[in-house]
């Protein structure tokens, strides 16, 4: 199989996910911010869960985040992810939690609390994924 034939696992692409993924393709990820209370949300949606305001605006994220948890898969489930590989949960500076992967150098002990910054990785099939690397 050519590398380009290995598909990135399908992205959920609802009405409100599309603008986010377009911003990722442009390597300037945006999330929705509530025009009334200023809350950010992830994943994107039709209105603000904090105050029920339906007027949201797309705003670029800073890319700064902190690791909340991490795992290492020792089994392959998906063609695009041969084992071992990691997944991380990060708290974005804007507030929401996001699931992603840690690229590059790994912390030696616990990963929790490590500061990370957003990077864009192009998968073999051309899909651009927002990932993170250590911010040191």
């Amino acid at each position: 199989m050519n590398a380009a034939d290995i598909r990135t696992p399908r992205r959920v692409m609802g009405l409100y996910d599309k603008p986010m993924w377009e911003s990722v393709d442009q390597k300037a990820m945006k999330l929705q911010r509530c025009t009334r209370c200023g809350s950010f949300q992830y994943p994107p949606g039709p209105g603000c869960p904090a105050c029920l305001c339906m007027e949201l605006e797309w705003v670029p994220v800073s890319g700064r985040a902190t690791i909340l948890s991490w795992v290492v898969f020792h089994r392959q489930y998906l063609p695009a992810y041969p084992a071992p590989y990691n997944s991380i949960a990060v708290r974005l500076e804007e507030g929401p939690i996001m699931i992603s992967n840690l690229e590059g150098e790994k912390p030696s002990g616990s990963w929790i609390g490590e500061r990370v910054r957003l990077v864009y990785v192009t998968m073999p099939d051309g899909v651009v994924l927002p990932r993170f690397e250590l911010d040191r």
């Binding site: 990135t8 696992p9 399908r10 992205r11 959920v12 994943p43 909340l68 948890s69 991490w70 795992v71 898969f73 489930y77 998906l78 695009a80 992810y81 590989y85 997944s87 949960a89 699931i99 992603s100 992967n101 616990s110 929790i112 899909v127 994924l129 990932r131």
Partner: peptide, 27 residues
């Protein structure tokens, strides 16, 4: 939605969700 939303990053399987929980809980 959490069961499928994070698949692009390889976070698949119910076990992975609880592995993330355990890691944070251990810490």
């Amino acid at each position: 939605l959490s069961y499928v939303y994070h698949a692009p990053w390889g976070l698949t399987s119910q076990g992975a969700l609880y592995a993330l929980t355990l890691q944070a809980y251990k810490h």
